[in-house]
Write a protein that binds this DNA or RNA. Structure first.
Lengths: 133, 133
DNA sequence: TATCGTTATTCCCGTCTGTATATTGCGATA
DNA sequence: TATCGCAATATACAGACGGGAATAACGATA
């Protein structure tokens, strides 16, 4: 896979866990939750970061992924660089130059990180739903 | 209850849910989570806000509560005003002027809000602990 | 009626985050 | 060896956020 993009196809995402659920008999009250993983006391994996990884897998480049999230390339690059630095093994491999100018693709470690995080998030969503009842 | 304060007795608080727990065999990896309640799409109750309410109950004033959290009075006032406005019934009653210059105390609704939120948070902490295993 | 400490309100400022823009480096491929 | 698009990097800019300080309003109480 490796799409090209001029304009974003996805909307920018703030991915929280679980669907908002009404609480009590108030009007418009919703319980929300967010999960993330720290490394060395700093953010390592979080909802937005993982979405970025997913988009990199989808578009084959930081540039495409950033555009798809309406995020600046700079910000995306900083996030990727930060994650890669904190990960035990690199999550992505970046190539500057070469076929198509280069690109970025996920390592097995990266794919595994996405899977793990999404699973955690899925469970959180489920939990939040029960918590709202 | 109604303590006086010149210097903060408590440290500023970032209250997350659950104790950080090691994940996998990485070094220094911790799973974290945060829960909050929205009203009308905006934050209504969150960890810091609830701590503020607790401190108001403890010190009998926004001023004292703010100092105890090393938070500016301005910020504390804005938070309290925002919460009070979004709550179905006021969480606190504020008095400017009068005995001791006035003060702020919780309503039953406010006490109930604290209790409810802390209970949710306690459950989240428990859940996170199981999730880390 | 003067005092006192708190609430309430306003203005200015530094910091932080992220955007926008421009430029350079890169290397497989035609 | 020229091309192409992306990675990498630097700088300037904008907006949000919260702190700090200053001031007014308030009202029970001495």
């Amino acid at each position: 896979m490796s799409k090209t993009l001029s304009r974003p196809k996805h909307k920018p995402v703030k991915r929280l866990s679980g669907n908002p659920v009404k609480l009590e008999n108030y009007s418009d009250i919703t319980l929300k939750a967010r999960i993330w993983i720290d490394a060395g006391g700093e953010t390592y994996l979080a909802p937005g970061r993982v979405t970025l990884l997913e988009r990199i897998a989808e578009y084959g480049s930081i540039t495409g992924a950033a555009k798809s999230m309406e995020m600046s390339y700079r910000h995306a690059w900083l996030l990727v660089d930060d994650m890669n630095g904190k990960a035990p093994k690199p999550l992505v491999v970046r190539a500057s130059g070469g076929k198509g100018g280069g690109g970025t693709h996920l390592t097995d470690e990266g794919k595994r990180a996405i899977k793990t995080f999404n699973e955690l998030q899925r469970k959180l969503g489920k939990f939040i739903k029960t918590l709202s009842a």
